[in-house]
Measured scan of single mutants.
Amino acid sequence: MTYRVRIENADGEVVTIEISADELREKGLTLEELLPPNARIVEVEEVEP
């Protein structure tokens, strides 16, 4: 499974990243732990691999 994640950074700019569930598991991280300081998740969407 892959996630498309929209993130708002500290400057108010919204960027989109895609990350797979396998990648998260391998790194032992959650989506929140990948965020840079002062950023927030705006939207998470599951996409087909």
Rank of each mutant, 00 (worst) to 15 (best):
P36Q: 04
R40N: 07
L31F: 07
G12T: 01
E45V: 13
E18K: 05
I7E: 00
E45M: 13
R6K: 15
V42G: 01
T16S: 06
D11E: 10
V47A: 04
T30V: 05
L35S: 01
L35Y: 03
L35R: 02
V44E: 01
P36H: 04
I17N: 00
G12I: 00
L34M: 13
G12D: 02
M1R: 11
D22P: 03
D22S: 13
E45T: 14
R40I: 12
E45I: 15
V42H: 03
E18H: 12
P49F: 14
T2W: 15
E26G: 08
G28H: 08
V44L: 07
E23S: 08
R4N: 03
L34F: 14
E46G: 06
A39T: 14
E33V: 04
L24Q: 01
V5M: 05
E33P: 00
T30P: 06
A10V: 10
A39G: 07
R4W: 06
G28C: 06
L29I: 12
P49G: 13
E33R: 05
L29S: 05
V47W: 11
R40M: 07
E43R: 08
L29F: 08
M1E: 03
E23G: 04
R6A: 05
K27C: 07
S20K: 09
V47F: 12
E46L: 15
A10C: 11
D22W: 15
I41K: 03
R40C: 07
A10S: 11
L24E: 00
L24R: 01
A39I: 11
E48S: 13
I17S: 01
I17D: 00
E46H: 09
L31A: 01
V5Q: 00
G12L: 03
L34H: 04
R25N: 09
E32W: 13
N38T: 05
E13F: 12
N9P: 02
L35V: 10
T30I: 05
E48P: 14
S20F: 06
A10G: 09
R40H: 09
E26K: 11
E33A: 11
E46Y: 14
A39E: 02
A21E: 10
D11N: 12
T16R: 03
R40S: 06
D11H: 10
G28V: 03
E13Q: 13
R40A: 04
G28S: 05
E32H: 09
R25I: 11
E23T: 10
L34G: 03
S20G: 07
I7W: 15
V15R: 08
E8F: 11
E26I: 13
V47E: 03
